[in-house]
Amino acid sequence: ATVHVKGVTYHFDNPEQAEKFAKRMAKELNGEVHVDGNTWHVD
């Protein structure tokens, strides 16, 4: 799974980790999470 945060890409072997990371980053950055298959975007 892949997480894109403000133009930076993070790779996770575990999709659950990717989801938790994306949601945590969105919270910290006051952003929104969008999911597209195995790819998470934090804007």
Results as ranks from 00 to 15, higher is better:
A18E: 00
H34G: 04
Y10E: 01
M25S: 04
V42E: 02
A18F: 01
K20S: 13
A22H: 00
E16G: 09
E32T: 15
E28D: 07
Y10K: 03
H41S: 07
G7S: 05
G31W: 11
E28R: 10
L29M: 09
K20R: 12
F21D: 01
E32H: 15
H4T: 13
T9I: 15
V33H: 04
G31R: 05
T9S: 09
Y10V: 05
V8N: 08
E28Y: 10
N38Q: 07
L29T: 06
E28P: 01
V3P: 00
D13W: 06
N14I: 07
G37T: 03
K27F: 12
V33D: 02
A1Y: 15
G7I: 02
K23A: 09
K27T: 09
G31Y: 10
K6V: 06
H41E: 07
N38W: 08
K6Q: 13
T2R: 13
A26N: 02
T9M: 12
H4C: 09
A1F: 15
V8G: 05
K23I: 13
T9G: 04
H4S: 10
E19A: 08
F21A: 04
A26V: 04
A22G: 02
V33T: 07
A18R: 01
V5G: 02
M25A: 06
E32C: 15
N30A: 07
A1V: 10
V33K: 02
N14K: 08
K6D: 14
H4R: 13
T2N: 09
L29E: 03
H11A: 07
K20H: 11
E19Q: 06
V35K: 15
R24Q: 15
V5S: 03
A26K: 03
V3Q: 00
K20G: 08
G31H: 04
K23F: 10
T2E: 09
W40Q: 02
L29V: 06
G37E: 05
V35R: 15
P15R: 12
V33R: 02
D13H: 07
N30G: 14
K23R: 13
G37H: 04
K6S: 13
K27P: 01
W40K: 02
H41W: 15
T2K: 13
N30V: 05
A18K: 00
E32W: 14
N14S: 14
V5I: 11
D43K: 09
G7W: 05
H11L: 10
V3C: 03
G31K: 05
A26P: 00
V5T: 03
M25H: 03
K27Y: 11
E16K: 10
D13Y: 06
K23Y: 13
E19Y: 06
N38G: 06
A18D: 00
V35W: 14
K23G: 05
E32N: 12
N38C: 06
K23E: 12
N14V: 07
A1R: 05
A1T: 09
F21I: 03
V42F: 03
E16R: 09
V3I: 02
K23S: 08
E28K: 11
E28C: 13
V42Y: 01
A26T: 03
E28V: 11
H4V: 15
P15N: 14
D43L: 15
V8E: 10
E19F: 05
H41D: 05
L29P: 01
H41L: 12
K20L: 12
A22C: 03
K23M: 13
K27L: 13
A22Y: 01
F21M: 03
P15D: 10
F21H: 03
G37Q: 04
F12S: 00
V35C: 07
F21G: 01
V33I: 13
K20V: 10
V35G: 09
K20Y: 09
E16C: 12
L29S: 05
H41A: 05
T39F: 09
E16Q: 11
G37W: 02
H34Y: 13
T39M: 13
F12R: 00
E19M: 07
N38K: 06
H11Q: 08
T39S: 15
H41G: 03
A22S: 03
D43S: 13
F12G: 00
G37F: 03
L29A: 04
V33L: 12
V8I: 13
E19K: 06
E16L: 11
K6P: 03
D36H: 15
T39L: 06
V3W: 00
G31D: 03
Q17M: 12
V33Q: 03
A18Q: 00
A1K: 05
N14L: 09
T9H: 08
W40Y: 14
N30I: 04
M25E: 03
H34R: 14
V42K: 01
F21Q: 02
E16W: 10
V42R: 00
A26L: 03
L29D: 02
K23N: 12
L29I: 10
G7C: 07
V5H: 04
G37R: 04
H41P: 02
F21W: 05
N30P: 05
R24D: 13
R24P: 00
N38V: 05
V8K: 13
M25N: 03
A22F: 01
N30D: 09
H4Y: 13
H4N: 11
L29R: 03
G7V: 01
E28S: 07
P15I: 11
D36N: 12
N30E: 07
N30H: 10
N38P: 05
G31P: 01
H11G: 04
H11V: 10
D43R: 09
F12C: 05
L29F: 07
T2S: 11
E28A: 10
T39D: 13
D43C: 15
K6N: 15
F21L: 03
G31M: 15
Q17C: 14
T9V: 15
N38D: 08
M25W: 07
T2D: 07
V3E: 00
H34C: 13
M25R: 05
V8M: 12
K6E: 10
W40V: 04
N14F: 08
V8W: 08
H11K: 08
A1P: 11
G37Y: 03
D36S: 13
A1N: 08
H34N: 05
F12P: 00
H34K: 08
D13R: 07
F12N: 00
A26Q: 04
P15L: 11
H4Q: 11
K20F: 08
P15V: 11
A18N: 00
H34E: 04
T39P: 01
K6M: 15
Y10A: 02
G7H: 05
M25T: 05
N38H: 07
K27I: 12
D43M: 15
G31S: 08
N14H: 09
N14M: 07
K27S: 10
F21R: 01
K27Q: 12
N14G: 07
E28I: 13
F12A: 00
E28W: 11
V35L: 12
K27R: 11
H4D: 06
E19V: 05
H4F: 12
F12D: 00
K20N: 12
N14W: 07
V3R: 00
D36K: 11
A22R: 01
N30M: 09
V33M: 07
V33W: 14
D13C: 09
K27D: 09
E32L: 13
V3Y: 00
E16A: 12
G31A: 14
V8L: 11
T9R: 10
T39N: 15
F21K: 01
H11C: 09
D36R: 09
N30C: 12
Q17A: 14
F21S: 01
Y10D: 00
T9L: 12
V42T: 02
H41I: 15
G7N: 07
R24M: 14
H11S: 07
F12W: 03
H4A: 06
R24K: 14
H11M: 08
A26D: 01
P15G: 09
P15M: 15
K6F: 15
D13E: 12
P15W: 11
D43W: 14
Y10W: 06
D36W: 10
R24C: 10
L29N: 04
V5F: 06
V33E: 03
F12K: 00
V5E: 00
G7T: 04
K20W: 08
T9D: 08
G31F: 10
Q17Y: 07
H4W: 13
K23C: 12
K20A: 14
P15K: 11
E32R: 13
N38Y: 08
V42H: 01
H41K: 06
T2L: 11
D36A: 09
V8H: 11
A22I: 02
N30W: 05
V8Q: 11
G7F: 04
V33F: 09
A1G: 10
K27C: 08
K27M: 12
Y10I: 06
W40C: 04
V8C: 14
E32A: 12
V42A: 02
N30F: 07
E32S: 15
F21T: 02
G7A: 04
T9A: 11
F21Y: 06
K27W: 10
E32M: 14
V3N: 00
N14Y: 09
E32Q: 14
G37S: 03
V5Y: 06
H34T: 08
H4K: 13
E19C: 07
Q17L: 12
A18W: 00
V8T: 10
H34F: 12
N14P: 01
A22M: 02
A22V: 03
D43A: 10
E16F: 09
L29K: 03
A18P: 00
Q17P: 04
R24E: 14
